[in-house]
Structure formats: C-alpha cells, structure tokens
Design a protein around this nucleic acid. Structure first.
Lengths: 243, 243
DNA sequence: CGTAGGATTGATGATGTTCAAAATTGGTGG
DNA sequence: CCACCAATTTTGAACATCATCAATCCTACG
C-alpha cells in the first residue's frame, strides 16, 4: 500500500530442487524428468512489499506460483470501496493459462518471489503434462471451495464471527505446537478489514472484544496474537465442520 | 424448498449429439471420436424441483454437467443462516473429480437433468483427454473469477446495488432483443435474498425502489421484470467494466 | 524527544434486520 | 363462477449492527 517499493530486493539461490513449493504447488505430482521440462520454461520474478503486480483488467502476461512471501488479490468499485478476494501464500498459483488479462488487482504484501511462466507457453505445456494439469485443476477447485466459504462469511457472518474466523484460520496455519498458539500478523487492521468486508474500526473493536472475552491475548501493540483455546475461538467464528 | 418433489418427471430422447451443452460445457473442445468415448461412461440423472441433490459434507459420488434446468449451491451456518454460493445452469459443471464429498448443499431449483460420471472414472478419463481437462480447467477458473466478483458484491455493495446487479445479470442473459428486455424470474424473493446476502424484505423494498425510480417495471405480481435501459441499471449496480 | 503510522476509543447516524400485519395472486373445490 | 386457502410479496415500525467522523493513544524510529 505504501509507495517507494523496490523491484529487486535480494538474491538467493533458487532451483526447482530447492524450491519450497516443490511438493505443495503445481509440481507436487510430477517426477524429476517432468520437473526438468517445466524448469526450462520457468522464470523467477520478484516484487517488493507494497508493489502492484497487476491491476484489474490490466495486462498479466504470465501465470505462476508464489515461491516466497505473500500477495493479495483485490477487486474494487469505482468510488474506492475495495474487497480482498484472495491471498497468495507460498505454493499458491495465480493467472489463467492462455489469457493475458488480470481479473483482479494483485499486490505484494511482503517482498515476494514468483516462479512464472509465459501464459501461452504454459498452456502448451499443460497439454503435454497430465501431472501438472490434474494438480492444477485440483488446486483451482480447492480455491473455488475456499472462495465460496468466504462468500458465506461475507454474506452472513457478524463482525465478531468474521474476526474470530479470520484469527482461527491464522492460528490453524501455525504448527500446532504447545499452547498458547502465537501468531504475528503480517497484515494491518486496514488490510484485515478489506479481507473481511468491514471497516478497520470495527475490526479493532472486535479484536478488543475477543480479548476482553478471554478468547485471545495481545502482544506487541496488537500485532501479535495469542490463543489458548482454539476450539473456543472456532466456536465464536460459527464454525461447525473441522476442516 | 417445498416438499413432495419427484425424482423422475419426464423422459425425452437425449444423446451427446442432441445435448444442449455439447458446445458450451466440458465437451466444447473435443471431436466426435472423443465424444464417443466420454459418452460411454456418462449417465443421465434427474431431480425434481426443490429436491436436494447433495448436502454439505455429504456424499456426492459423481461429477457432472447440467443438461437442462437449474440448481443452486448453498452453504449454511448451524443456526440456519444460508448463503447461496453458486447457481448451476445448462452446461455448468459440478463436483470434484476423484472426490466423493460435496462441499456445499446442491438443490434443484427447477426440474433438472444432469449428465453424470462416476467421480473416479471421470478422473481417469481426464488423464486420457487433454481436450476435456483443458476445457474443465478453463471453466473452473471462470467459476473462480465469478465467485470472486460475487465476493465484492457481498462484502462491499449496498442493498440497492446488489439487487440492481442481480437484475442486470439476469437481463444480460436474455437475448438482446428489442427493448424492453423482459425476464420472468425463476426465483422467489427469498431465494434472491439468499443469493445476495440480504433479507427477503430488503430485496422486496429495493425492487420497489428501483421501480419507483423508473429503472425497471414489473408485471405478473412482481415475478416478471421489464427493463428499458440496461446501462442505467448497470450504473445503479456500481458496474464499471462491460463484461 | 518529536514525529509518523498504526491502533484504539467515542459519539453519532445510516443501513439493513426483525417482527408483524396486510395485500396480491393462483389454485382448488363447492 | 365464485369463495376460500396457501404461498408469496409488499409495507410498516422498532431495533440492532456496523460505518463514519473525529480525537486520542501507543510504539518504533529517526
């Protein structure tokens, strides 16, 4: 969101063999031979925190996976209202093979590295690799399920439930170490609000309310969250199924 | 939503050659040879209006496309709040190849016919048909884009904008004949409300307001809508891009 | 020590929900 | 043909929730 972002911030050795997404992303199901083939058409690209990677309806000449860092997807109305519609974490894929236009704005949250492919070459590659295409379909269907779960949150949950839901997702990503679960937010209140379809003040108030009710504790000026009882938090989020 | 639905309501001759979804759905990109192959594993299944096809987290042993009629996808909270998360129209696909569990409730809106495949056999078939799998990926990515557009609507649009958006989508599906555009709703106010994340009373009030403002006209006890100026309606919906 | 960015808190008002009642329509049977 | 019934829609009034505007607090950092 801030200006003065940088395009190249760091160099580190990165190959398909050392890729953090090797066993989670689109390459999860393929063997070393195929990895070699896809490796020949990849190209790493980096963006600095806050930089805009693509704008809604603008050019997006590549598809690719996040290797390191995170980014967010947003859609907006002409008067400035913004809704986050997705978050990209390591191994997540973005873009439409064969198309060169972005459906939403893509912004780097932190410094981020993508493993990218020319959108047309990648579509061609898909035709020759049932491993990658079946995995990509699977991942996309999961994204669709997640988007639809978020629709339930946006359309029907209360502010309190929304914030509790967001936090419980956060804690579930932390390795389930001994409690308390501890998590330092990479996002500001404003970004969380954009994600949850709320105002930043409402997010702040609900965080305070959850703290008052003993469901979470805060540290570090409200940027680090602690949770002693995740199931209680999930209950406050209106969650029923254990996914 | 009503009881007393029927499972078999009508028989009509249906083959891949006469299939209404032949050139829109997952078979759009394949030739007659491949059509023959996929035709061997298909099985038509029918449900009556209002019938439940699958429940959230329940068994869904098939994947498939709508051939005729329509169905809706919903997710709900334990206290009864419901959010529609998608609508299935002819040529739309549902289900996850290789998996047998539904992520949401699937309900027939009207009498509906699906062209179904055993979820495991279909996954196998995908591996042997790059035409179907590339088309299915494309369709799923479009579904994902649509779901994310709907997230913007649910999270940020006002009730008036939501209803105007819904109606303009409706009118855009009608063949752009001479105005006025005319459309008879297959949905009740209650269903529309479930779709838009509103109460049915608010939907009714906003429809009235749009009529009062001359953006639409009503017939047939509010179940048939007329529109003289689609672009005005789209403006009221907060739409900017022409998609 | 001062400043800037982010977070919190307070007061007020707009928007949409809820509960309740009345109006409209299509279908059914006398 | 008409009266009645059920389902749906519309309308009204009171209320709850969340957004907005504004001020203040906190912390990291120069």
């Amino acid at each position: 969101m801030t200006a003065h972002a940088i395009s190249i911030y760091e160099d580190f050795p990165l190959t398909c063999q050392t890729c953090p997404a090797r066993h989670d992303g689109i390459c999860a199901e393929i063997d070393d031979d195929e990895l070699l083939r896809i490796g020949r058409i990849k190209r790493y690209q980096k963006w600095g925190a806050g930089e805009t990677i693509a704008i809604e309806g603008g050019s997006l000449p590549f598809v690719g996976s996040v290797v390191k860092g995170s980014a967010c997807l947003t859609r907006s109305l002409s008067d400035g209202r913004v809704q986050m519609v997705g978050m990209l974490l390591p191994s997540d894929f973005v873009g439409k093979p064969g198309y060169k236009t972005a459906s939403y704005e893509i912004t780097a949250i932190s410094n981020v590295t993508f493993c990218t492919f020319d959108t047309v070459s990648f579509k061609k590659f898909l035709g020759s690799s049932s491993g990658v295409s079946s995995r990509l379909l699977d991942m996309t269907l999961n994204d669709l399920d997640n988007a639809r779960s978020w629709m339930l949150l946006l359309g029907r949950k209360t502010a309190r439930e929304k914030v509790a839901h967001f936090l419980s997702l956060l804690f579930q990503r932390v390795r389930p170490r001994l409690s308390p679960l501890r998590c330092t937010l990479p996002l500001t209140r404003d970004t969380i609000a954009t994600y949850l379809g709320l105002s930043l003040e409402t997010v702040s108030r609900q965080v305070t309310a959850l703290r008052r009710d003993g469901l979470i504790r805060l540290e570090n000026n409200g940027r680090t969250m602690l949770c002693d009882d995740l199931s209680a938090l999930r209950l406050a989020a209106g969650e029923t199924t254990l996914d």
